[in-house]
Design a protein around this nucleic acid. Sequence first.
DNA 1: GCGATCAGGT
DNA 2: CACACCTGATCGC
Length: 625
Amino acid sequence: MSSFAGRMKEYPYISLDRFDRENLHARAYFLSHCHKDHMKGLKGPLLKRKLHLSRTVRLYCSFVTKELLLNNPKYAFWEEYIVPLELESPTQISLVDEASGEKEEIVVTLLSAGHCPGSVMFLFEGCQGNVLYTGDFRFAAGDVSRMEHLHSGSRVKDIQSIYLDSTFYDPRFYQIPTREVCLSGISELVGTWISQSSYHIVWLNCKAAYGYEYLFTNLGDEFNTQIHVNSLAMFKKIPEILSYVTTDRKTQIHACRHPKDEEFFQANRVPCGCVADDGTPLRIISIKPSTMWFGERTKKTNVIIKTGTSSYRACFSFHSSYSEIKDFLSYLRPVNIYPSVIPIGRSLSDVTQMLRLMCRNPTHQAAFVYKPLGVLKRSRVQRPTYDSESDDELFEGLDLVPVRKKLGLNLEAKTEDVPEAQSSSESASFPPMDSSSQSVVQNYFDCTESNGEDDDDDDDGEGGKAEEESKEETPTGSSEAPKWEDFFTAEVLTDSQNSQSQSCCSASPSRATDSQTPELFSDGEETPDVDETFSLTLSASLSNHSSQNMESHLPDTLILGSERGDSGVVQSQTEELSASQASSDFDVPCTPESKAPQPDVLSQLYRKLASGEEVVARKGSQGSV
DNA sequence: GCGATCAGGT
DNA sequence: CACACCTGATCGC
């Protein structure tokens, strides 16, 4: 459940998904989706009165969210104050202080969030940089790389902060089967049952929330039927859903509800009855969508679990898993990440510390977590003490996965074991050379190297780079991956490239379209040699895997590098790590005159990696490429 | 009577 | 298997 207080540090004049307390003073409101925990205060009398007195305050959301919201009479008073926005259409909004007339401009872009019908993320671009508020979201690995508005040309935009749906940002929730896998499991069960006779009925025991509709549309398509629901009212202006639901109970798939669902569950009947119109008793199974998760090394597990003679649970998640969130963050590499949800059993500081490692400069804001100050070279293996069972998350931020993807290493053979490998086909869609994960690794060690010297210089190399952006390639695949949520919003797309070039702040006109410049190439920064970077990456990642004890009874699986015969033995990894550190921490000092690696040197290295050649630097063999 | 909040449930 | 929301009790206005 969202515990986001409603406001972002960068743009405090707007409120998102919270409408009470200080948010009553906002100059504009944003609603990411129509779930109650994101609508706190939205029907409050104080807010209602403010609206009546104001000439400029509006609520911005998607068209679908507007429809779902206004379907509830309690929110009907919002009608004249809602401004629905198309997806992927940058829109300039003036934030006006009605008392003083003072004004700030901001550009907002709605990005489909895959959480429920109408759900969006908000990308804000303005004087304080680019900020992404994710709302609640479910992205699969690789999805983020296809989002045009998070790119500028072929590069990822420079994101200052992400306000993140961190519901499952915890290694316990490492994998959640993909939407497609879950759907096919449910399809199979439903098909097996309802094909037996027309009196065989399936009841989808869905909770009272938007988000299950894609189940309805997909099952409806597959079995050429409609789904029985209590009411069509909320979908009356959303034809893509409306055509799949019915209030006629004479159908084999039901998602109807009743306050006493559980009694029906026990009595083995659907809320709308237990006999057909002709008096024949119905044969009913219930399927309860619920979140299932698996550890990092858990073998593929069934997405359907039988819980009784005629009841099942089916895997279903509205939110991204830990690995999906990591994929998302390691691609965008924001400067700051703020969690909007604290997973159960965690504290805010747990999550904040874990998220720091996914930031562009993980140690920068976390001096109290790790401050080497000249201690032993292997000190990075020391863990922060915030939690015992998963203290190895110190290395979570150094996952090799995006690098592997970008390099196109063949991991097909490991698909069963490695969740990320399912998306190895995504490799082509990462922008060329916008190696954000490499940058991060680079940054991480840059920072470590300069420990004790100067910690607050990480913002250079970012601000003034817009001009040198190359526009030769656009991100691939933006059109080839339709998502289910596209169903729910009209497809009126404006020319984003043009819209984006609008300047919204005279003080810093280019800021809004800045892209991340990989630190690997940034000017005036210490740049250790490339070979070292990769060896560090591999080592850290290996260490990460070996120390993940989600399934501690399992032997170390050879998730990484098994093709090359590397074993995941803790000892050897530790040695590699310390060897790398020996180099990175002290032996190779950072010199201002060290020069950036040349592109041809890099591509040589990439070729090596792609062909499986040894590039992991062994002890004492860390020469330059 | 209404709204906010909490506990407890699915 | 931890989402999102419902109901009911209690309190304050």
